[in-house]
Amino acid sequence: VVYAVWAAAWVTWNVFIICFYLEVGGLSKDSGLLTFRLSRHHSWWHEHGPGCVHKEPAASLGPPDSQALVPGIGCTLEHGYVEALHSALQILAALVGFICACHVASVVTEEEDGCWRR
């Protein structure tokens, strides 16, 4: 039952994320809503999206960096769409889990009722 409640909350959160990144209902990705305007955090997919261009690091005297990413250049999908697709997959997984949790809860409840009838 606890898992079913968690799955319902997870679905609600992911619906919000989809609406946020697709800017539905007056929401804006640039609003700072997810970080409460406390940080300059941005989506991981903004730099690591499918097909994004990698820029070779410039030669320097400092420690060698791994590849520096150029956000938003040459990406196959804009990061907002990748976030929405990722959340949609999370919703599908949570719905399957919710259905299984409800089924298990009903089976356990029926078994407990059967013990009392004896």
Rank of each mutant, 00 (worst) to 15 (best):
E47F: 10
L92I: 04
L69R: 14
E110H: 07
H103F: 14
V96T: 12
H42P: 00
A59I: 01
P64C: 05
T76P: 00
V15C: 09
W13V: 15
G25E: 07
L85Y: 08
C52K: 15
P63G: 03
G62C: 08
A94F: 03
A84N: 05
G74Q: 01
S43P: 00
P63Y: 02
F36G: 02
I99P: 00
V1H: 14
C102F: 14
A105W: 12
G97T: 15
A9K: 04
C52S: 14
V15M: 07
S106L: 09
A58H: 01
D65C: 08
L92E: 00
G51I: 07
L38Y: 06
V53S: 10
R118I: 04
K55T: 05
L22E: 08
A7S: 14
C52W: 13
A68G: 04
G72V: 07
V2P: 11
A8R: 01
H54M: 13
G51Y: 07
C52D: 09
L22F: 02
A94W: 01
I99R: 15
A88Y: 07
A4M: 10
P57Q: 03
V15N: 01
D65M: 12
E78R: 05
I18C: 07
V108D: 12
V15S: 03
L34H: 11
E110M: 11
S28P: 00
V1R: 12
F16T: 02
E47V: 08
E112H: 08
L22C: 10
P50V: 13
N14A: 08
V108A: 15
N14K: 01
Y81I: 11
A105K: 09
F36S: 13
P71S: 10
R40H: 10
V96K: 05
R117T: 08
A94G: 04
V1A: 15
A84S: 13
S60V: 04
H54T: 11
V70N: 11
H48W: 10
A8G: 15
S28A: 05
A59L: 03
P57R: 00
G62L: 12
F98D: 04
K55S: 09
T35G: 02
S28G: 01
P71R: 12
A94Y: 02
I99L: 15
P63K: 03
W45M: 13
E78N: 10
G49R: 12
V1M: 15
P64Y: 07
E47I: 05
P63S: 05
Q90H: 14
N14H: 11
V24N: 04
D113T: 07
V82F: 03
P63R: 02
K55E: 08
V2A: 12
S39A: 09
L85F: 13
L89W: 09
C19V: 01
L22D: 05
G51A: 15
P71Q: 10
S39I: 02
E23G: 11
Y21T: 07
R37N: 13
C75K: 07
S43N: 01
V24K: 06
G74I: 00
K55N: 03
A93Q: 04
C75F: 09
L95V: 10
R37W: 01
H86Q: 09
